[in-house]
Nucleic acid binder design. Structure first.
Lengths: 216, 216
DNA sequence: GTTATTTCGTAACGATCACTAGGAAATTCA
DNA sequence: TGAATTTCCTAGTGATCGTTACGAAATAAC
């Protein structure tokens, strides 16, 4: 059985200069991975535009020129932070395609979102859902990039459901787009609820409530 | 039967100086209501922080000092725009409490959200859900204000469900917090989907999918 | 040791941010 | 008409935005 291409790994590779092949010159005086992680946490909490370079350099422990030599500009740093966010421990595509059934795929995706929304060492909510909800015209391309990433997850889930219909796992009258869209809506809505203070237990029950749409 | 207080009308009254009782002095050279409406549309599209005063004055057709004399500062203008957004044609509390059943309340609320998310003359999505998802520390109070408004709607719906349990309209084992939270999550998630390009038909089906959680 | 290459911190760049003096203009009331 | 009041526009305020010259410092190759 052929697995579809994991787009998120590709994205991580596209943006990732995690170990650039340098041969000469002064070495980096900071750990690039931990600096990126700190940047991710800040973008996660305050979003793309509201996070200033002053905030970033403070959290990353480096000066603005170091940010630009190591990561490019603010936009590239953010996109790499998003790729870092999506890169582990399990990518959405892995969660969907490793599940034994389409229903389990949706359930696992929802529960993974709950865990991500309510982590102890991370800000509440989902970076992909909240960090560029609304932004200025200057950041329209960043907004579109995140929308594309969200769309990729939804497409991946919808395709998984469509395959389940073909194999007879789900009834032929199943509306794959509707079910996938509902799961995505709940995932993104739970991010807001988490930011508004909802705890893990409440979100878990909401996810279970959403799965009741899958009962025959 | 006593109806709960409609908090949204109170909010609108709190912020509303729509017709301040002036007796002397030079009159306003612009229509305050339409200027507020234009500001609301801009906040709706780009959010609170990403909408600059320069953008606002351009859209409202007035100069910065006029904004400050008529509306206070940017924060007050935004909150009044939110109150304007929530004030009509039907407030969420009206939709919930006018419905014959708790199930109809949820259904009507979801469908009203779909209509609001996909209006022809308004930006896609929901202003309440998207305009301050993530913001800087300086706007934390605005963020909290919107979270409070969202929480009021959720509480209103949950109370409606609790009443339905008491009257026997819904079974006693019903989890009111879960059902209300699920509806709120879908509403806020649909806002993101609408911003990402989902049309009215797709959102309507998603809302219908969410209501399947209410089947016995 | 010399050269080439890269990163370092300091200090600034122009642009834009939300916001406001200050005085002229327009209204009401006497 | 004259005084009081309020809004008008012009032109700016200081602060912060993302970004970058610039020269010193640190490494590898020779």
């Amino acid at each position: 059985m052929k697995h579809p291409v994991n787009c998120f790994i590709l994205i991580a590779m596209k943006h990732g200069n995690l170990n650039p092949p340098r041969k000469t010159g002064r070495p980096l005086s900071f750990d690039r991975a931990t600096a990126l992680h700190q940047a991710m946490l800040l973008f996660w909490k305050h979003g793309y535009e509201a996070t200033s370079l002053s905030d970033l350099t403070k959290a990353m422990g480096i000066t603005p020129p170091s940010v630009y030599t190591a990561f490019g500009d603010k936009k590239q740093l953010f996109l790499e932070a998003v790729a870092h966010y999506l890169s582990g421990p399990l990518t959405p595509a892995q969660i969907i395609n490793d599940a034994p059934t389409a229903r389990a795929a949706a359930e696992n995706l929802l529960n993974a979102a709950v865990l991500g929304d309510t982590g102890d060492d991370t800000p509440p909510g989902c970076l992909l859902a909240s960090s560029a909800q609304s932004c200025s015209a200057a950041a329209a391309d960043v907004q579109a990039e995140l929308a594309s990433l969200r769309g990729t997850i939804e497409t991946c889930l919808r395709d998984r459901i469509s395959r389940a219909i073909e194999t007879g796992e789900m009834p032929p009258h199943t509306d794959a787009e509707m079910l996938a869209g509902h799961v995505m809506a709940v995932i993104q809505g739970m991010s807001t609820l988490a930011r508004d203070g909802a705890n893990r237990d409440k979100l878990t029950r909401i996810a279970a409530s959403a799965m009741r749409s899958w009962e025959e």
